[in-house]
Design a protein around this nucleic acid. Structure first.
Lengths: 355, 355
DNA sequence: GTTAGCAGTCAATGGGCGAGAGTGCTAGCA
DNA sequence: TGCTAGCACTCTCGCCCATTGACTGCTAAC
């Protein structure tokens, strides 16, 4: 494996994967010969195939069948296409323009970029796609405000450097005075101002213990809001076109389809699986031991702002997927999305999107 | 069909559906005779079956097979069990207690009742379940507040009779005076106080035109928030255990599974399909022309507060589903949920759940 | 090192056959 | 008139088997 393959072996291996990707059928020596190597005979191809089989690249489903690529073969194939910089050929300019265009159309409409991107990727490739937003908790509290409303209600506003965080109506006992609200407000500010959400667990409340009497309820309320925010804003995963996988013969049994879908549906699991190569620009994982899903390959691209990875977009499809196209689409979307995020300051408004 | 069936025919039909539900296999005359009608011979049962077939209740997959219930048979079956008030036997007290208990445990945890209910129902019945929250726009605005923050930002708070609605940070030009904010606040209040969200489209702004200059931006902002709220708070549909359907032989082909799942995934479509019998306490729909999904039955229960339907919970499963159990569970959940909603005033807090 | 040719292997297909399940019909009985 | 026993008929399903076709691996010759 570590040994370099001969040029002809490379050509044959590449041809075999190419053919297998398009047909889905075991590839015979004469297929390769007639379509890729007319200068030699099929017998020659056969002996090369034997050698490749011995090297662990390919295998035969049974004695009298053609050859099928193994994991190693796909790896070789992916390397060869990404090395040769052939993404240029994978997507035409029109396709690129079209995809971009559709993405921005959608973006205007839904606001949620991950959703839009997942949809576009799935549509463009015809495979199941996903987007993961790695949520950052690097948020600094700028201001906490207790705003009295009519009746005995009040609302807590938490303003951060990234936007407004959360609000919640709470009930005050009916006989509170305006003064109380102001004191509480300033106390809350004293406690929380300048704090970072990442350190939530470390908030040391003992130091301000003395002043707390009478305000404990409100303090708890605010902490609760923050905790809920942190816990509910873990990485978000959106999946698009989950059913598209069922179009491929790899998943023609309901059993297999079911296990596939249940893995995909488990968002936490997905986030977990893909967290490993979060920082890799473009990663390809093939086979169950690699990615947790049987008979599948997962291609992911990480999109960044500056050096920070803010999310991943990817495709999950059969091992024999159209890697050229997928890689092309993902590269495109990666760049597009990075640019979009970079351009717009992101506000963490609570609830509705702001468009 | 309009004609009453003889007692024996009823008994046989009921037995047939019963057997078919448990076995999934065509039911033979001797099956019925040995397990339900030992007092007569199988030949007698056979002639009755012929008659029932002629009446359109049942059919034979092929000449030498047993009988299989048709839509009419299921309808008869459902009617007979709900008429005889036999829900009592469907769920034991322990089961009832267990389900309730699990529901309340979950409720504490996620807060979102629909999700909890859907999960419980799906677990208890082993079928795909769903909950629909019919969102009511009958919300009256009590107060609109413009709260200035540090810097030049401000936030709009909209308080309604059902809780707090939405908030959004907006930028004011840096040179606004405190006075401006106050005036804006009172103007907004004047415009929106007492209005109902249902009439959003009819808000007639011309009458207050004169005062608007200088506040147009803020006014637009508020209207935008309201519009977004209304449009994003359409009926919400949650589905649980979508894959459970694939366990049943009705959906053993990937083709069928796929169409089933794609119907289920389309939340809008679901909301649409089920909106017809929103007000029906307990509805059973069998067959494609009835419910849009082939080879399926849908059972829904509407839960209400007072007279208003606030949501529906339901099960979607194979036609031959365990109606007794399903109806039992749905009745239980319907009552439980109605009680829960009734008990707690519902706050429409924006974003996070409140607990 | 390459090729042509040939024998061997295996999956897939389809026909034929028997077993099993269940019905419909008919004749006889209460 | 309604019920029953018995029997012939029908249809599906699983099984075996032979045939076909698609490849390969090997070998001998170039």
């Amino acid at each position: 494996m570590s040994k370099e393959l001969s040029e002809r072996k490379k050509k044959i291996l590449h041809a075999l994967v190419d053919l297998y990707i398009t047909t889905g059928q075991p590839v015979s020596s004469s297929d390769i010969q007639s379509k890729y190597l007319p200068e030699v005979s099929s017998a020659t191809v056969r002996s090369e195939l034997s050698a490749l089989e011995a090297l662990g690249y390919i295998e035969q489903p049974h004695t009298s069948a053609g050859r099928v690529p193994l994991k190693e073969a796909y790896k070789f194939y992916v390397d060869s296409i990404s090395a040769s910089g052939s993404e240029a050929t994978a997507l035409t300019d029109q396709e690129t323009a079209f995809i971009r265009d559709r993405f921005f159309k959608r973006l205007e409409h839904i606001e949620d970029m991950s959703k839009a991107a997942a949809k576009i990727i799935s549509d463009a490739t015809n495979y199941t796609s996903f987007c993961i937003e790695r949520s950052s908790m690097d948020i600094e509290i700028e201001e906490v405000k207790l705003v009295p409303l009519k009746g005995s209600k009040a609302v807590v506003l938490i303003v951060t450097d990234k936007g407004m965080l959360a609000n919640k109506a709470i009930d005050l006992s009916p006989d509170v005075k305006e003064e109380y609200v102001e004191t509480a407000s300033s106390l809350l500010n004293k406690i929380f101002q300048g704090r970072n959400l990442m350190d939530l667990e470390n908030f040391d409340l003992s130091e301000i213990d003395v002043e707390i009497q009478g305000f404990k309820d409100i303090l708890d309320e605010v902490l609760k809001i923050l905790r809920i925010y942190v816990s509910s804003h873990s990485d978000t995963v959106v999946v698009e076109g989950a059913l598209k996988m069922l179009d491929y013969p790899e998943y023609s049994s309901v059993e297999d389809a079911k296990t596939f879908l249940s893995v995909i549906e488990d968002r936490e699991n997905m986030a977990q699986i893909l967290s490993d190569d979060g920082s890799i620009e473009l990663s390809v994982r093939i086979g169950k031991e690699d990615n947790g899903v049987d008979k599948c390959a997962i291609v992911t691209a990480a999109y960044k702002v500056g050096d920070e990875v803010v999310g991943q977009a990817g495709v999950i499809g059969p091992e024999r997927m159209d890697y050229k196209k997928v890689i092309g689409v993902l590269e495109l979307m990666k760049n597009t999305m990075s640019a979009v995020i970079d351009g717009s300051t992101k506000h963490i408004t609570d609830g509705h999107s702001e468009d």
